[in-house]
């Protein structure tokens, strides 16, 4: 369970998050959607502690996440573009995270490495790996220590279809294990496939938060794509 309570964030004069309050229940996958600049990434980074909000509260499983490194102990994160220390090998990067987490992950890690076919790449320096392979390393790092909160920023971007499918399976597995999963993605078909809930952000405000069927019912649309298109136009109309 991740709770956001009246979050505000400014970057200089730009008001990026405007009073964002959201609940992400355990055992669900929530898709955070919205146009570019809507505050999705800032919100994700706030939960992660990469960005410190100006106002408001964030709790992860009941623990405040603001200026609290401990809140990330069971949190996994996959960044949008996976770039890593260039001169370390994939194995070393994984080892480093293991070392920092001080967790025993051998079983889970080995299984993940296997599922993403990373074995042949483990001893190559990160700078020599392709974008997709790096993304897979990112997935292993995010998932190997059985996180109870999983934050994925455009996770399938750059992945080949097989890896993409395996990632989705892993996400579903974590959800079924009771994890709170947040995903941002532009690929709405993917969201429809994965997400139980949707949070729609527009210019730093939450315009909708709830499960997918309610959204469809509310907008009278027959697909997530249409529903979202409807929200976007109405948001723009309100603004106009």
């Amino acid at each position: 369970m991740i709770t956001l309570h009246h979050l505000h964030k400014h970057f200089d004069s730009h008001h990026v998050l405007k009073d964002v309050s959201l609940d992400f229940p355990s055992g669900t996958v929530t898709a955070v959607i919205g146009p570019n600049g809507s505050g999705k990434t800032t919100m994700m980074k706030s939960i992660l502690g990469l960005v410190t909000p100006d106002q408001g509260q964030i709790t992860v499983h009941g623990v405040s996440a603001i200026n609290n490194a401990a809140s990330r102990e069971r949190m996994g994160y996959m960044a949008q573009i996976a770039r890593y220390p260039e001169n370390l090998t994939a194995q070393e990067v994984i080892d480093m995270v293991k070392g920092l987490r001080q967790l025993e992950t051998n079983g889970a890690m080995a299984a993940l490495v296997d599922r993403f076919d990373l074995g042949p790449h483990l001893n190559k320096p990160m700078r020599t790996l392709s974008g997709g392979t790096r993304q897979k390393v990112g997935a292993v790092i995010a998932m190997m220590y059985s996180p109870t909160a999983l934050l994925l920023d455009e996770p399938t971007a750059g992945l080949d279809p097989i890896a993409s499918e395996r990632l989705k399976t892993e996400i579903a597995r974590h959800r079924d294990g009771g994890a709170t999963v947040l995903i941002t993605s532009h690929i709405l078909s993917e969201i429809q496939e994965l997400a139980d809930r949707v949070a729609y952000l527009h210019e730093g405000r939450v315009l909708y938060s709830g499960d997918v069927p309610s959204l469809l019912a509310r907008t009278g649309a027959d697909s997530l794509q249409r529903a979202i298109a409807h929200m976007m136009t109405s948001a723009n109309e309100v603004q106009a």
């Binding site: 992660l48 502690g49 990469l50 490194a69 401990a70 809140s71 990330r72 102990e73 949190m75 994160y77 960044a79 573009i81 996976a82 770039r83 890593y84 220390p85 990067v93 995270v97 920092l100 987490r101 790092i141």
Partner: peptide, 10 residues
């Protein structure tokens, strides 16, 4: 990127 990776760890 290295920093972000470390920052997202506890």
């Amino acid at each position: 990127d290295f920093i972000e990776l470390m920052l997202s760890q506890p």
